[in-house]
């Protein structure tokens, strides 16, 4: 019995260290790869507690290995937006101007009932009350209410990744994005975030390591 108590205490400390190593990212809303990591760590940790026959390192080594790989993987995601898209997927618009995008629902294999349930959980009863609804890569529904006075800004460019869906919704092209940015004296690679609603834009430049990031709101003339 003593060995179980000791092993459980050691594994408890090891799992906390591993979660601490992975950082706060692991404690928030989980992306697919992070969910896998969390499942794996919990399973590997329980093996050694349930089976005192196994050496303690058979849990400790995989826990630290998984945690280290997760840290390196999340850094690779930070450095490469393409890799991030590959790993996590992209947000998909399912409601635009009160209209359900049925093709998107089919692609995501989300039924209308699921969508209505997600809407109700946000305190809305009909799609007409939504100006823009997006299924995020972690599976949650984010919405902009149609009742809000300001029109919702759509992301056109996030960290080198163009959102073609939103460009189409605003009847714009990739070329327009480049031209718009060059008017502001910027290149696509210098922009962290570019939001646009057909009238106003919000551009946040990438910060250098030393300098803070700067952002600017502008009105389309």
């Amino acid at each position: 019995m003593l060995i179980w108590i000791l092993r459980t205490a050691i594994i408890y400390v090891v799992v906390i260290l591993a979660m601490r190593l992975m950082g706060k990212r692991q404690l928030g809303e989980l992306q697919p790869s992070e969910l896998v990591t969390t499942f794996l760590i919990s399973n590997v940790a329980s093996i050694c507690i349930n089976e005192p026959d196994l050496p303690l390192v058979s849990s400790m080594v995989p826990i630290f290995l998984i945690a280290s790989l997760e840290v390196l993987n999340s850094s690779a995601v930070w450095y490469s937006p393409r890799y991030a898209t590959l790993l996590f997927g992209r947000p998909v618009t399912v409601i635009r101007n009160g209209q359900i995008c049925q093709s998107a629902l089919r692609r995501l294999r989300i039924t209308a009932a699921d969508l209505m349930e997600a809407l109700r959980s946000q305190g809305l009863l009909t799609p007409e009350e939504v100006s823009w609804g997006v299924i995020e890569p972690n599976g949650t529904l984010s919405i902009a209410s149609a009742q809000e006075e300001e029109s919702s800004m759509l992301p056109l460019l996030i960290d080198r990744q163009i959102y073609h869906e939103n460009l189409e919704a605003l009847s714009l092209t990739e070329k327009w994005v480049d031209e718009y940015l060059s008017e502001k004296g910027l290149h696509r690679n210098q922009v962290l975030l570019f939001l646009y609603d057909g009238d106003e834009s919000l551009i946040i430049k990438k910060a250098s390591r030393k300098a803070e990031g700067s952002s600017g709101r502008g009105k389309q003339s």
Binding site: L21, V61, L65, S68, L69, V71, L72
Partner: peptide, 19 residues
């Protein structure tokens, strides 16, 4: 990006310990 160094150090330690 200190965490990357920690992760790399842990991986290196694991490899050395394994050998």
């Amino acid at each position: 990006m200190k965490r990357n160094w920690y992760a790399a150090a842990i991986l290196l330690l694991l490899i050395l310990a394994l050998f």
